[in-house]
Design a protein around this nucleic acid. Structure first.
Length: 420
RNA sequence: GGGGGAAUGUCCCGAGCGGCAAAGGGGGCGGACUGUAAAUCCGCUGCGUAAGCUUCGUAGGUUCGAGUCCUACUUCCCCCA
């Protein structure tokens, strides 16, 4: 197609969101008229979404911001009971319905910062396929939906093919996943006039199945749009911090740590990430991207603050930036660092360093054995002084003027112990 | 139904004559160098502030001593029917 006429497609294209689409012209036209109602589905396999999901959420944001259509966030309350085999070597553990409900409620909270929900034409809605999938009748489903699926073709999909080639188990349960996801698309079309599904590039097959099913059932033309799988410039899969996944929920990953995650972006990724993970205008991004050498750190700080702001709010982002500035640039003690309160009696009696860093208190390290090893390689500091004696003890004399002890693991992770 | 093979350090792959806390990778973490980057180099990578304790699919057995030998069971793969 020529250059896109809709703000929506132009934005996604210039910011690098688009990996694959069906019928670009059709999408463009629908976006221009504001009738591109679009959904993205989210599994409820974990307690929170993580940055792997962020691209699709931001795409929904742009959909709404450019007035291209109504965003639908679909919770996979039903499909999670089956388990998507895509990208999986082995069968997912089957979660209990209680666990799925719990995850779902926790996941939902992340969307409010990105989308405006309500009853208006372009207001976002949250749906849940547990509303319809559990009520399907097996025979009816086979007759109405199953007959449109060719097993020959299903076997050719990567998610299935890989398992078969490697002689890995693929249960009949999982084999049905793609039918249900296809059905979701059609159902959302009926309920909300949804005409497009977006997702990560690994979802392409599943999405196209929905389009095919729609055509066979006489549903209006449906569209697909996928975004690239996020990798860092050095080829690592994105989304890991030292402590695990980069969760979107603040109770699982504090705004400060989230800010740090973005601050540590590789040079080569800065421009790409500014486009994808912030709402900054393109000309401003171009300026930041032009920075070279050590100056690029300024761009990284802006990336971190902007990305944190759209998830946790401006105030939390500024606080994280300030905490980082005091800690890293002035080398001073920032009282807003993550703080663990301990009983004053522990300090009075003298608290062993190994224990203090361990899982019981600062939680910087998973075990005291690990703490011992880190001391040997010089990775632990108390009040910015490297710990050399694994038998060292924290005492009242170690408290700073602020009445805390600063424990550091590596150059980047700090925790304050505050006796109360 | 019959025959053969395999399960190893709770991230993955993977060696392992009866003396093993168990080779080697990958990944991860720390240190050095830098810019809280990448690349590179070095170190660490079961638990325990000591003594020591607990690991090789599960349960028994042989032995001074078992990842290693024997028996049963579980799961997976291959061949035959």
């Amino acid at each position: 197609m020529s250059s896109p006429k809709s703000d929506f497609l132009r934005t996604l294209t210039e910011r690098g969101f688009i990996h694959q689409t069906s019928d670009l012209d059709g999408i463009d036209a629908a976006a221009k008229e504001g009738r591109l109602t679009t959904y993205v589905g989210y599994d409820c396999t974990g307690p929170s979404l993580h940055i792997g999901h962020l691209l699709s959420i931001i795409m929904l944001h742009w959909l709404q911001a450019t007035e291209a259509g109504k965003p639908i966030a679909l919770m996979g309350g039903g499909t999670t009971r089956i388990g998507d085999p895509s990208g999986r070597d082995s069968t997912r553990q089957i979660l209990t319905t209680e666990k799925i409900e719990e995850n779902k409620n926790s996941i939902k909270t992340a969307f409010n910062r990105f989308l405006t929900f309500g009853n208006g034409k372009l207001d976002a809605v949250m749906s849940d396929n547990a509303e319809w999938l559990p009520h399907l009748n097996y025979i009816d489903f086979l007759r109405d939906i199953g007959r449109h699926f060719s097993v020959n073709r299903m076997l050719s999909f990567d998610s299935v093919k890989l398992r078969l080639e490697r002689d890995q188990e693929l249960s009949f349960l999982e084999f049905n996943y793609m039918l249900l996801q296809a059905y979701d698309f059609v159902e959302l079309n009926k309920r909300y006039g949804c005409v497009m599904q977006m997702g990560g590039s690994d979802q392409w097959g599943n999405i196209v199945n929905g389009i095919d099913l729609g055509r066979r059932l006489g549903t209006p033309q449906l569209y697909a749009l996928t975004c690239p799988l996020m990798m860092t410039a050095s080829g690592q899969k994105m989304g890991k911090t030292a402590n695990g996944a980069v969760w979107l929920n603040g109770d699982l990953l504090a705004p400060y740590d989230y800010w740090q995650f973005w601050r540590n972006t590789e040079d080569a990724d800065v421009e790409r990430f500014l486009k994808l993970f912030t709402y900054l205008p393109m000309d401003e991004i171009a300026k930041l991207a032009a920075l070279g050498g050590a100056e690029i750190n300024e761009a990284k700080k802006i990336l971190a603050t902007e990305a944190t702001a759209i998830l946790h709010g401006r105030e939390a982002a500024e606080l994280a930036a300030e905490t980082a500035r005091v800690t890293f640039e002035q080398g001073e003690l920032a009282e807003s660092l993550p703080t663990v309160e301990i009983s004053a009696a522990l300090i009075d009696a003298g608290l062993g360093v190994l224990t203090a860093f361990g899982p019981e208190y600062a939680k910087l390290l998973p075990s005291t054995s690990e703490a011992r090893r880190q001391i040997k390689s010089g990775g632990l500091r108390v009040n910015d002084k490297t710990v050399t004696d694994e038998r060292g003890v924290l005492r009242v004399a170690d408290l700073t003027a602020e009445g805390v002890v600063k424990l550091s693991f590596g150059k980047k992770r700090h925790v304050l112990l505050r006796p109360v």
